[in-house]
Simulated scan of single mutants.
Amino acid sequence: MKIQKSFSGQELNTVYVVPTPIGNLEDITFRALKTLMKVSVIAAEDTRNTKKLLNHFDITTQLISYHEHNKETRGEQLLERLENGESIAIVSDAGMPGISDPGYELVQAAIEADYPVVVLPGANAALCALVGSGLPADEFLFYGFLPRKKRDKEAELERLKLVSGTLLLYESPYRIKDTLKMLHSHLGDRQISVARELTKKFEEYIRGNAAELIDWAEKTELKGEFCLVVEGTSSESVQKDKLWWSSLSVVEHVSHYINEADLSSKDAIKRTASDRNMPKREVYQTYHVDQ
């Protein structure tokens, strides 16, 4: 067990997680600016992007890169700097580091090495989209980006369709049409809110059912980053979905996932075993050996 007292007067050897604006520079907080000025070094996902932010606010703190491709070696270097008494701020291109952006590994490594980690509040696209969607916000699941491969995406949507809370997804303009169509086919005609270009000049919310959103996407030039807020399933639907396979044999159950969800036999067996609360080896035996 580890206990951290974040404000005990200790400012050295500390990692500060600093959210940055997701579009509107006025969303930076006074505390974030003060922190970026006082730390020894700022670790940024893209130094070119962060340099623009620092120049706008006349911040001259040393800036180094920390991203998906150098996080292991750079993480070791940053830990050495903590050991030498320096403080570090980690930022992403926009929003909260660690949320679909680099940051988690450095935070984890710092905690394991007993260095304080202080997280500042700030801009986050998913929460803005959720609150602005008009959908329930008392229970929600942030997923981020769905897998790119069709088979993997369909498998995840089959799992997510049983979630009762509101779903939060990120998506690029290049895949938004296909994602809306797959949401409709796997989750049904649920209420969806698409938030685009949040906090920027062309901020836009498009709210409606899945079919309406698909029609909108087909007729619209899609630009910017998107956040999808999807209505969760009802308890009645969960129970119905859990029992849809009751009339199927084990073999038919596995075959359904292979043919309809385009899963491999291995993944179909795993899903069938989960549905029926059976050991995977029994499902494997029934499907591959006994039939």
Rank of each mutant, 00 (worst) to 15 (best):
D101A: 00
L135I: 08
V107A: 10
K153M: 15
V163L: 08
A137M: 12
S164M: 15
S100T: 05
L135A: 02
A129G: 05
K161Y: 01
V119E: 12
R148K: 13
V163N: 10
A109M: 10
P147Y: 12
L135H: 01
G165A: 11
Y104W: 03
K149W: 07
V117T: 11
G103C: 04
A123T: 08
P136I: 10
E156H: 15
D138E: 15
T166L: 06
D114Q: 09
E139L: 12
S100N: 08
P116Q: 08
V117M: 09
P136S: 14
F140L: 05
K161V: 06
K150H: 11
E156R: 14
P116S: 09
A110I: 07
L168A: 02
L106Q: 06
E158W: 08
R148A: 13
V131Y: 11
D138N: 14
A129L: 04
V119G: 07
E112M: 07
G122Y: 01
A126V: 05
E112A: 15
G165W: 02
S133H: 00
S164E: 15
K150Q: 13
R151N: 14
F142T: 03
D114N: 13
V131H: 09
L167K: 07
V131P: 03
F140Q: 02
L146V: 05
F142N: 00
V119D: 05
P102L: 07
L146G: 01
I111T: 13
S133K: 02
G132E: 10
A123G: 07
L146F: 03
C128T: 12
L120C: 05
Y104F: 12
D138Q: 14
R151Q: 15
L141E: 02
N124R: 07
L120A: 07
L168E: 03
L167M: 15
K153L: 15
Q108F: 11
K149R: 14
R151K: 15
L120R: 06
G165T: 10
G103T: 01
K161S: 04
E139W: 08
G165C: 09
S100M: 01
K149L: 10
G132D: 07
L146W: 00
K150M: 13
L106E: 04
E139P: 02
D152V: 04
T166N: 06
L160Q: 10
P102D: 06
R159T: 15
Q108A: 12
G122I: 06
A109G: 03
Y115D: 07
G144A: 06
E139H: 14
A123V: 05
V118I: 15
P102H: 06
A113S: 12
Q108T: 12
E158C: 13
L167E: 03
P102Y: 05
R148L: 10
V163P: 02
E158L: 13
V107S: 05
K153Y: 09
L120S: 04
L120W: 03
L120G: 04
P102A: 07
K149D: 13
I111W: 11
L160W: 09
P121D: 10
V117E: 06
